[in-house]
């Protein structure tokens, strides 16, 4: 393990950087998209609710690998050039946004409905009430599940290895095939993944306990 670390620390560091970048970008965008669909799900418009429902159900029920490969192979063939990192991050975003939408929706629904009525009665529009009153409370409730989604994102970003996205897993495959030391190569990246994911998931468990 030590030799792999000392001989290949540059590749590993690059991989770690791309893995983190992809996970953070995907978290930000999936939070935006996911919240949007969550709000659509609680509006009164039947059309909006149906669109949100369809989006969420489709992307929750198709493998991430299929979504990612679609953006890497099909979109460039017919629409626009997308590289592996971008395709992977888009795939991660779409996939995760469906899960975040569900989480945020349950957060919104757990806020007392009286709050919305009260805010509306005080002259706020639906959107004002949503963004100033409801969402801040909802987000506080869903921070632990969102943190766990980030852990999932870091783990799932290994799908970038399938589309040459330069992430940790991609580097691990290459290091393993150069050194022929398969187990130790994967051990090293395993430890690197754990360094990111373990503290977050322990912290989220702590938050969950405190909120409960």
């Amino acid at each position: 393990m030590i030799t792999i670390l000392s001989d290949h620390w540059q590749e590993l560091l690059t991989g770690l950087g791309w893995t983190l970048l992809s996970s953070v970008l995907a978290l930000i965008f999936s939070l935006i998209i996911g919240s949007l669909f969550a709000i659509m799900e609680v509006t009164e418009s039947k059309v909006a609710r149906t669109i949100a429902r369809i989006y969420i159900e489709i992307f929750r029920n198709i493998p991430l690998l299929v979504i990612t490969s679609f953006f890497y192979l099909v979109i460039p063939m017919y629409v626009v050039k997308v590289n592996g990192f971008t395709a992977g991050t888009i795939g991660l975003t779409i996939y995760t946004s469906a899960f975040i939408a569900e989480t945020v929706r349950s957060g919104i629904q757990s806020v007392d409905p009286g709050q919305m009525e009260g805010a509306r009665a005080n002259g706020l529009t639906f959107w004002q009430a949503m963004s100033n009153v409801i969402l801040p409370q909802a987000f506080r409730l869903v921070i632990p599940p969102l943190g766990n989604q980030f852990v999932n994102l870091v783990k799932n970003s290994s799908v970038l290895a399938f589309v040459a996205g330069f992430d940790l897993m991609y580097q691990a495959n290459n290091i393993a095939s150069i050194t022929f030391d398969t187990i130790n190569s994967y051990m090293v990246v395993g430890v690197l993944y754990l360094i990111i994911t373990m503290p977050i998931s322990y912290y989220m468990r702590y938050l969950e306990k405190r909120l409960a």
């Binding site: 890497y72 192979l73 099909v74 460039p76 063939m77 050039k81 590289n83 592996g84 399938f162 040459a164």
Partner: peptide
């Protein structure tokens, strides 16, 4: 198979 499809996709 993946490499060839990637070439076709202009990667």
């Amino acid at each position: 198979a993946q490499a060839l499809t990637s070439l076709k996709a202009g990667q």
